[in-house]
Design a protein around this nucleic acid. Structure first.
Length: 834
RNA sequence: GGAACAUUAGCUCAGUUGGUUUAGAGCAUUACUUUGACAGAGUAGGGGUCACUGGUUCGAGUCCAGUAUGUUCCACCA
């Protein structure tokens, strides 16, 4: 067979991926083998493949391919997440480009466009995963808004509501004024912002209700959001603060709008911050809200849902909050209320999805009482029922679970699972599976015939559907106890990013115990964050995120997989450099050249020579490589069991490059223009196959290609070939490996000597060594007589007594033991002679 | 403010319960080597006060305390 000079990765990637799909290798049905199940963390339906996905899915593919080759029933489920906020934002943007306002559409019209968008663009990322070589079972592709999945989400809502775990309540929530929706605490990202701290003086009111002149008296508060004074309901001071305690019980006046508000005492107020007096705005601050409830204060909601000022603000109505901030400062200055303005660096919450400043806002939302379902999920991780890799995330998880807060699950969006609650005009409601049931329930509950009901406009948080992912992809709720879910659930490994440990991982564990009565997975592998060489996160804004598909096109999926994995220490972020792709490419090239060498040997073996002419007489190199392979395999098994994939790959890399190519192939290499013995060649090919087996999960395309070129006809394809799992080190391996080490150093010494001898034109060199070294050399004496190597060097032992003579070309080298002398000094002398 | 984790060669990292004379690997770098699978290669070499300061010990990269720096998570004082 003609082997091309270089590996044609494009042809191989196309050829093998198509072939694997044709052979249905990745499809899975329950049988009597042990299952190995992985569910993909469903990427956003809007997503495109980036480095994080690349790392994450390469790792999953390695685990799954390896499991498949170890005889397990491997099942890797693909799918996408409807990603309510992200997708809705994309659709709104698309409509805007077409000149359509969302507000002008009905819910159904909007959803029509959204589905249209999803059918057209959604799931691009799944196609991209194919390019990476991911061995997913595409028949099982799921979407969190598939009809069955949708119903299951609704069912779970009903069930939790019935159990009393879900309630509706008016609470402070994080409001995203751009997406016009509530956010959970986890969706808020705090960033440090350079802002201003405004010190504002409020007029005091005397006992008779008269306002005292601002110049004489007043109370100064500090705020970073001066526009919110319009919603002030009180001023609070610390009851122990000597400066202000006499004012408690009196009143002040909100500047510009003349609202009379009480001055109250509360321990919450810090005496050493700002002015020591705190304005209380119950509608727009989490803590103020608590204080407001405690003191029974009025609530003035001065913001509209889009972040503009409401009628209740009385001033600057309709202005955006940031515009209003600027303007109100001018007004306050004119009225003499501004004492001073200081620069101030503080933390401000931003929406994870839209990156706008989040407003704390009081609103009526749906909540899950997390304390009621967190119990089993906490102990499962504590007791090692579920293992985290790396284990450090166990602490983090415990802390969060022990301090868990209720989960706000309603979102003011249309794209998603509509909350299954139906209301009448008076606001009375029932929770039901559908409208028909709702009417029935409502009639019963309130004793009304034919009630006119309207379904809740809001949607459920995306994570309220994805927490069912590990079992609902097998229809664990829509078709309970079916064959697939009983066989493939619980899954084995979950590979995900630590950022979503609370969003997703913790909640999946809770849902798993609640609905399946079993953990959703046994092991969670948290990957690091992919950063650039300067340690910055990959991001669109920085432009440091490479185009993955372009890279795959340039250098091949195998090289990219190698590149990202070799740079990925277990449990740490990885600083990714494009150069590591080149290391991957070089490695592929090395494999390819080994194939070319073997191809030459095949030709030589055809020469059909007599036994005498076949000079390679010793089996020792094979014995040595077998021992080496056994040792490395055991090591790789161990590393893989600990999810140290990067190290496993490094071990393989050095096994192939150093042991196989640099030593083993040299030792079995026939002399120049000498024939090749077929038995030896078969053994070499056999060993190469063993290496390809082990490398295949990491670099599937090049290994499959080489595997098929090695022999004319292969019985099975490499991707489903069964790994020889009996490969364990034997008792004699240690001795064999030791011999190998000594031989390596002997050969190295000879090379050195040869170089030196040639330089000095000497034809014989002596090296003196210690007794220990002499003993080491003795180990290989029997090997030397076997003429281990037929081409570069030859060895004889028939020389001077008590020494080993090495013949290197025309140069002879004697290794002698000289115990009495100082070896380093002696050596130096010899080197000088040379 | 609280916590977790980290700090070993230019870079990225190994270093098992403290014990092989001289602390490892890959990449990068330097010198040399090009008709025999492979210059996308080979060979050889350089490069480290194991963050710092103390302590425990016969012995510390490894254990303890403190300091510094960094990363991440949690909380958040207007």
């Amino acid at each position: 067979m003609e082997i091309s000079k270089n590996f044609d990765f494009k042809a191989a990637e196309n050829k093998w991926y198509t072939h694997w799909l044709d052979q249905k290798y990745f499809e899975s049905t329950p049988d009597d083998r042990e299952p190995y199940t992985v569910v993909i963390p469903p990427p956003n339906v809007t997503g495109i493949l980036h480095m994080g996905h690349c790392l994450n899915n390469t790792i999953q593919d390695i685990l799954v391919r390896r499991a498949r080759m170890m005889g397990k029933n491997a099942c890797w489920v693909p799918g996408t997440d409807h990603a309510s906020i992200a997708t809705e934002a994309k659709v709104v943007q698309m409509l805007r480009e077409r000149g359509i306002q969302k507000a002008s559409l009905s819910r159904n019209e909007f959803l029509g466009y959204a589905w249209e968008w999803k059918e057209k663009y959604g799931g691009i990322i799944l196609q991209q995963l194919k390019k990476l070589g991911c061995s997913l079972d595409w028949n099982r592709t799921s979407f969190t808004m598939d009809p069955d999945y949708y119903n299951s989400v609704i069912h779970v809502f009903n069930d939790l509501y019935t159990k009393g775990y879900i309630y509706r309540g008016k609470r402070m929530i994080n409001w995203d004024p751009r997406a016009k929706t509530a956010l959970s605490d986890e969706e808020v990202i705090f960033k440090e912002v350079q802002g201003k701290l405004y010190f504002l003086k409020y007029q005091l009111v005397d006992a008779d209700g008269n306002k005292l002149p601002l110049a004489d008296a007043g109370i100064t508060i500090a705020t970073v959001r001066p526009e919110t004074i319009l919603g002030d309901a009180a001023i609070a001071v610390n009851p122990n603060d000597e400066r202000f305690k006499h004012l408690i019980g009196s009143y002040a006046v909100v500047p510009l709008i003349d609202r009379k508000i009480p001055i109250i005492g509360d321990d919450y107020v810090a005496t050493d911050f700002g002015s020591g007096a705190l304005k209380i705005t119950p509608a727009h601050d989490m803590n103020d809200n608590q204080i407001g409830i405690k003191h029974g204060l009025a609530v003035y909601d001065i913001l509209n849902e889009d972040g503009t000022l409401s009628n209740e603000a009385q001033l600057l109505i309709g202005k955006d909050r940031f515009e209003a901030r600027k303007e109100i400062v001018v007004l306050l200055e004119q009225a003499g209320h501004v004492v001073k303005i200081e620069d101030y660096v503080h933390q401000v919450g931003f929406s994870e999805r839209t990156d706008v400043v989040v407003e704390p806002r009081l609103s009526l939302q749906w909540w899950v009482d997390m304390k009621k379902i967190a119990g089993p999920a906490l102990s499962a991780v504590q007791d090692g029922e579920i293992n985290f890799h790396p284990a450090k995330f166990k602490n983090l998880y415990r802390h969060w679970m022990e301090n868990i807060k209720d989960w706000c699950i309603s979102r003011q969006l249309w794209w998603g699972h509509q909350i299954p609650a139906w209301y009448d005009a008076e606001g009375r409601f029932v929770v039901a599976m559908n409208e028909k049931d709702a009417i029935e329930k409502f009639s019963k509950a309130y004793n009304i015939d034919n009630p006119q009901l309207k379904q809740d406009e809001d949607c459920l948080d995306t994570w309220f559907s994805s927490w069912l992912w590990p079992f609902e992809v097998f229809k664990g709720i829509s078709n309970p106890g079916n064959k697939d879910v009983s066989y493939y659930y619980p899954t084995q490994s979950l590979v995900t990013a630590p950022e979503i440990i609370f969003f997703w991982v913790a909640r999946m564990i809770m849902a798993g115990y609640e609905y399946m009565g079993k953990k959703p997975f046994s092991d969670v592998y948290f990957t690091g964050i992919v950063r650039d060489t300067q340690g910055r996160k990959m991001s669109k804004q920085l432009g440091n995120s490479p185009d993955l598909l372009e890279m795959i096109d340039e250098i091949g999926a195998d090289a990219v997989r190698f590149g990202i994995l070799i740079a990925s220490p277990a449990g740490n972020d990885l600083l990714w450099d494009k150069a590591s792709n080149e290391q991957g490419r070089n490695f592929i090239n090395k494999l390819w050249n080994a194939l070319k060498l073997i191809e030459i040997w095949k030709e030589k073996a055809k020469a059909n020579l007599s036994a005498e002419e076949v000079s390679l007489a010793s089996d020792w190199p094979h014995q040595w490589f077998d021992a080496r392979l056994r040792a490395s395999s055991a090591e790789i098994d161990q590393l893989m069991a600990q999810y140290k994939l990067s190290e496993a790959l490094k071990t393989l890399y050095s096994l192939i490059w150093d042991d196989f190519c640099s030593w083993y192939l040299e030792w079995v290499k026939p002399g120049f223009e000498k024939p090749m013995d077929q038995a030896h060649l078969d053994k070499v090919i056999n060993n190469f196959e063993m290496l390809l087996e082990r490398l295949h999960p990491f670099m599937p395309f090049v290994t499959e290609e080489i595997y098929h070129l090695l022999r004319e006809q292969q019985n099975v394809d490499l991707c489903v070939r069964q790994l020889d799992q009996t490969l364990q080190p034997t008792s004699s391996d240690a001795q064999t490996l030791k011999e190998g080490e000594v031989l390596k150093s002997a050969i190295t010494a000879i090379r050195d000597a040869r170089v030196k001898a040639q330089i000095k034109n000497k034809d014989a060199v002596e090296i003196y060594c210690t007794a220990q070294e002499q003993a080491d050399w003795e180990i290989i004496r029997p090997l030397l007589s076997k003429q281990v190597n037929a081409s570069s060097f030859s060895f004889t032992t028939d020389a001077i007594a008590n020494s080993i003579q090495l013949v290197v070309g025309s140069a002879k080298l004697y290794i002698k033991s000289e115990q009495a002398i100082d070896t380093s000094a002696q050596r130096k002398t010899i080197e000088d002679e040379l």
